[in-house]
């Protein structure tokens, strides 16, 4: 484990480094969200922003989990528990959404929605 005393100064350095990395990534997140150059495509949020924003968040999260939460030092058991948790979490996310957007039903949905008025010119 990392707490053997000779390791401690090294540990401290890695904690500081992670802290700084997290701050940097926060700035990146905000920049992606606000700065026009990162606003891929037309103004406003779109799929690209989500991918970028969430990937940065995922990187930050794994830094926290691995270093701050000492996951990098744990044995397999916790990984197993977290793996299952993650699977069920994914199931909850994906299946629920899947149930709402069934690919077969979707074909009917497109027929249903009226799109005509959107083509009107404003004013």
């Amino acid at each position: 484990m990392a707490d053997a005393s000779h390791d401690l100064s090294k540990t401290k350095k890695s904690y500081a480094a992670v802290g700084i990395a997290l701050l940097v990534f926060t700035v990146v997140t905000v920049t992606i969200g606000l700065a026009p150059i990162f606003d891929m495509g037309p103004p406003g949020p779109d799929a690209m922003d989500f991918v970028l924003g969430l990937s940065v968040a995922a990187v930050k999260a794994s830094l926290v989990a691995l270093i701050f939460m000492h996951l990098n030092h744990e044995k397999g058991l916790i990984y197993k528990i977290l793996l299952f948790t993650f699977l069920f979490f994914l199931g909850l996310m994906i299946l629920t959404i899947f149930a709402d957007t069934d690919p077969i039903l979707e074909q009917f949905e497109t027929l249903k929605t009226t799109r005509g008025w959107l083509m009107d010119k404003p004013r």
Partner: peptide
């Protein structure tokens, strides 16, 4: 009213 694909799953 789940769709057939989901219901199959």
């Amino acid at each position: 009213g789940m769709g057939p694909a989901v219901s199959t799953f």
